[in-house]
């Protein structure tokens, strides 16, 4: 697809490829759960919900096939005045948050991601819609990035 969005002159940093494993395992768990539930429902003779669950499981399987590409589509870049974040294959999204607008930076670790030593960084601005969440950072990276962002944000703070 030649017509994809691309920002010129940006060196994207990619997230850890371990995230692929994390997301695959997560998808596998949910698919297995759905299939099990579908089978159970079918055995109890509840046909329609079983069918719906089955369809959901199949569609999850299809989207799971794109997980590696989707994870590679995540990217972030620290530029001079702002932080860029990109995500999405089918629905592409580029967000930029000027450093001065950062209100706080969260680090979240889910159980699966923690097993792989990954963290998720969430940037919060005064606008609820910004919603930048960078998954798949190694814990060191996440902490370093957070400290850096908080420092830069502090020095450039803009009033509300």
């Amino acid at each position: 697809m030649a017509s994809r969005l691309e920002l010129p002159d940006v060196e994207w940093r990619r997230v850890s490829s371990k995230l692929i494993a994390v997301e695959l395992i997560g998808a596998a768990i949910s698919i297995v759960g759905m299939v099990a539930a579908a089978v159970a429902l079918f055995l109890f003779g509840i046909g329609i919900p079983a069918l719906i669950l089955g369809v959901l499981a199949v569609s999850s399987l299809v989207t799971a096939a794109f997980i590696p590409r989707r994870v590679r589509a995540y990217g972030y870049a620290l530029r001079e005045d702002d932080m860029l974040f990109r995500r999405g294959l089918l629905f592409q999204r580029f967000v930029a948050v000027p450093y001065g607008r950062l209100q706080l930076v969260d680090i979240n670790r889910g159980p699966l991601a923690r097993a792989f030593g990954l963290s998720e960084l969430k940037l919060v601005t005064a606008a609820a819609t910004t919603a930048v969440t960078i998954p798949g950072l190694t814990e060191d990276d996440a902490v370093r990035l957070r400290d850096h962002l908080v420092d830069v944000a502090e020095s450039r703070r803009v009033g509300l």
């Binding site: 697809m1 017509s3 994809r4 969005l5 089918l90 629905f91 592409q92 999204r93 580029f94 967000v95 930029a96 948050v97 000027p98 607008r101 601005t125 005064a126 606008a127 609820a128 819609t129 910004t130 930048v132 509300l160």
Partner: peptide, 27 residues
Amino acid sequence: RMQGVSVHQGPLYRPTRLAHVRAHIVA
């Protein structure tokens, strides 16, 4: 006062090379 800015492109916009721009402001 702007908090951030984003560009989006979904599958419907892609064939015609269109995109969506959004300025993020407080709710």
